[in-house]
């Protein structure tokens, strides 16, 4: 556990909120970070890391703060967007669901920080992402877009199946990234030096 005191936990949560912003927009900072034509956001990776490093309470809190500063108008969401209007975006549910992701990862990796465990937690987190995100999207279309009946609940799900393979890969990557960072910072055994970089 990294959190030393309540205050330290709160400050770390604020920093992770700021890092979520980097994760959401990393593609525009490293324009070439596009794999197979799909720009990658690292929000899953940062929320998994928040759960792993800060535990369930402060990890989830970090994402709550991220959502709140975004609503307050900081351009922290993907594509540098922000503002209260984001609530009406059909994809706001995904932003909210990272709170659950961080919590789940924090809860599942409290005592056991193996790759298997973390990958399982990240996958579960991604599943919850999809459940909250898709339901929110459906709700958004029903409530404020007043979509006609032709737009069914299953259509919303069918729509979401398109990016699913990418997100499963990203969940594994997220687990691997955060474990690498975790070991680089805290493990007693030295990690083999990373290719092309200071670690």
């Amino acid at each position: 556990m990294i959190v030393r005191s309540h205050l330290h936990g709160m400050i770390l949560a604020s920093f992770f909120a700021a890092m979520m912003m980097i994760g959401a927009n990393i593609t525009s900072m490293v324009p070439f970070l596009v794999i197979g034509g799909v720009p990658i956001t690292l929000q899953t990776a940062v929320s998994v890391a928040a759960g792993l490093f800060l535990g369930k309470k402060y990890g989830a809190l970090a994402i709550v703060i991220y959502v709140l500063i975004g609503l307050a108008g900081m351009p922290v969401f993907a594509q540098w967007s922000g503002g209260i209007g984001t609530i009406f975006s059909p994809t706001f549910g995904f932003i909210l669901s990272y709170i659950a992701t961080a919590y789940i990862v924090g809860r599942l990796t409290e005592h056991n920080r193996t790759f298997k465990r973390l990958a399982a937690a990240a996958l579960l987190g991604t599943a919850v992402n999809y459940i909250i995100g898709t339901n929110w999207m459906y709700m958004a279309y029903m409530l404020w877009f007043a979509a006609p009946d032709a737009f069914s609940y299953w259509m919303a799900w069918a729509w979401m199946m398109v990016p699913l393979p990418k997100d499963i890969v990203l969940a594994f990557l997220a687990a691997w990234f955060s474990l690498r960072v975790y070991h680089a910072m805290y493990a007693k055994k030295r990690m083999p030096s990373t290719k092309g970089g200071i670690a």
């Binding site: 890092m19 990234f177 960072v181 990373t194 290719k195 970089g197 670690a199």
Partner: peptide, 13 residues
Amino acid sequence: RAQAFVALLVPLF
């Protein structure tokens, strides 16, 4: 690429 990315994430964290 993922390796290169770790080299970005570790110092940032």
